[in-house]
Nucleic acid binder design. Structure first.
Lengths: 341, 341
DNA sequence: CTGTTAGCGCCTTCAG
DNA sequence: CTGAAGGCGCTAACAG
């Protein structure tokens, strides 16, 4: 038996244009035209619209897009950790821009796993998203090459392209880290420790570079014993901080490269009742409510989302006749903020 | 001229099954079968897979779903404020469950506007999402009725259905508020103020009810002058708190119904150097880092997302032959947590 | 102004 | 095991 076909009253399947047409006594084309606001006589239009209402008809945008040869009107957003407020701000920024252009956001969460990212990207392309904003989970990016993706434009967030030609929105990792570290040095500290994520991550490497540069510019050289790279969650960061502070010659100040680490370190300093000064990267709500001073290299994650979406949109407008090899790279600046007096 | 059609080397459009078939010297049907892992001779299969690889072909899931009469394999998630960490946790929970079933999440952000919610829901239905999880922006819900939505299942989060038959996942607003308030009363406070969102919101009303009940159960009656309902952002909450604390007879403790208000109030208490005790609803990261004690009715927002997704999935499995009138309502419990010693 | 034909990319059904 | 015909819901392109 045919799956649907009838205007059946209890019909479970959604009504189609033909159902509307039958009910209004016109052809499907006329219904299509009415829905597109094309020239149709007022009387016919009314009959059609009535039928639409009575049937609760909604045009199937999926079929429509297929016929029009358009893609889905959706853009993919692939992030490493949806649960992190940072990424939700980013998502919000992207959503706001996409929304204005009638585009919807499809979400993907990789949990930092390259394999998941790989599958997700593939799935999104199969679903014919118009484009994708990706926060890469690892350093390998070949699977993000628009060429192998059938031309679906990709914009990278937080990480620059490596071996592929795509646009990217970055944060001024180097500048922010340098400024934050310099702030500690300017306050007279000569023993500034470093707690950062692994150097394989672009942001980690850049922020470390900034830390080092600030020292050099002050005629100093950081001591390797005060450097810890690797921890990337609050408890591990706390443990690393403790290790540094437990030394015979503990650093008098610490610079942390992201908000997970800053929080873990803050907790530890506070627990030990140490007087260690603290600077970090990534702002967080309530940083101003803490009971000890802290310096943060701050920026707006929403800005990354907005910019990335804008880059993507401009690619979409260009269409496939884009000039290849002309990729853009935007850098969102950071601001130094002093909290807690 | 035909838009595509050729296996053109620089062909801009994505290759179709026919392109693959032509290249492999078979019919499109055979390609389809290979991709579905149906019975095809090993030799043919190899030829097809080679052509697939060479062309970078990906099956168009959109067209496939259309033909199969299936919907999109996506579920809509409509929230009031993506930027709020609460909702990103919720989204993460929902994503994790959806992911396991091969479903993708499509995001919608209403900014609390009923009109946006209306449009979004309509758009998502037109895009043929399999179902939707909605955090209602207002109290009107008629537009969320699956009946008028062509049978697309809806699950409400944070708010119970009003006049429509849908599943819902709620928080124990009443119990949490009662417990938090009772905690303040048990500590000897007899002047507990209330700072909450408008009573038109379900959560606001329920939490107020809990606050009141705790008083009653202690043989007390809250004083109207200590009650402020309406503010829903940090600065407004701070102003309302200040007003209460500036009174000749200020409350000695305050209960706040969400984390925005708790933060605003906390800031104000701290600024004034007041000794006011504080309890709130909604946990937040770093609550433990504050320098004064605070009691929180805590729960896991991710749990709401997971539960909501599970309810939705079970509806999807039932199919349209669901027993109507048998809606489910889940309540996520809260736990009282004491921070700051 | 309205209808007919054809086909987007894919898959079910029925032949071979 | 493989192919040809037909159609999912919709809309260009052409009639009339």
């Amino acid at each position: 038996m045919p799956p649907n076909g009838s205007t059946g009253p209890t019909g479970t399947a959604a009504p189609t244009m033909r159902d509307v047409a039958a009910r209004a006594g016109v052809s499907a084309m006329t219904v299509s035209r009415v829905l597109k606001d094309e020239n149709v006589s007022a009387a016919t239009r009314d009959r059609v619209l009535t039928a639409v209402r009575e049937l609760g008809y909604r045009r199937n945008e999926v079929a429509r897009n297929l016929r029009l040869g358009r893609s889905s009107g959706m853009i993919g957003l692939v992030v490493t950790n949806l649960g992190n407020p940072f990424y939700s701000q980013l998502a919000l920024g992207a959503e706001q821009v996409a929304e204005k252009h009638g585009l919807r956001l499809v979400l993907g969460h990789t949990a930092g796993l390259a394999q998941r990212e790989y599958e997700l990207v593939d799935d999104l392309v199969s679903r014919r998203v118009d484009g994708m904003i990706v926060v890469p989970a690892g350093s390998a990016q070949q699977h993000l090459d628009p060429v192998s993706l059938g031309g679906v434009p990709v914009v990278l967030a937080s990480s620059p392209p490596a071996g592929i030609e795509v646009d990217a929105v970055l944060v001024d990792d180097f500048g922010g880290a340098r400024a934050a570290t310099a702030d500690l040095l300017a306050a007279g500290h000569r023993a500034v420790g470093f707690l950062g994520n692994p150097p394989t991550l672009f942001t980690g490497a850049e922020r470390f570079r900034g830390y080092w540069a600030a020292h050099e510019e002050a005629g100093l050289v950081p001591r390797e014993e005060w450097i810890r790279r690797g921890p990337d969650d609050i408890p591990t960061a706390a443990a690393a901080a403790r290790e540094l502070l437990d030394r015979a010659d503990p650093p008098t100040a610490l610079f942390c490269t992201n908000n997970r680490m800053t929080l873990g370190t803050y907790r530890e300093i506070r627990r030990l009742g140490a007087a260690t000064a603290l600077a970090g990267f990534d702002d967080f709500e309530m940083a101003d409510l803490l009971d000890r001073p802290i310096t943060i290299a701050s920026y707006d994650p929403g800005e990354i989302g907005r910019r990335a979406a804008e880059l993507l949109l401009s690619r979409l407008e260009q269409g496939p006749n884009a000039v290849p090899g002309l990729t853009r790279r935007l850098v969102v600046p950071t601001t130094l903020v002093h909290y807690g007096r």
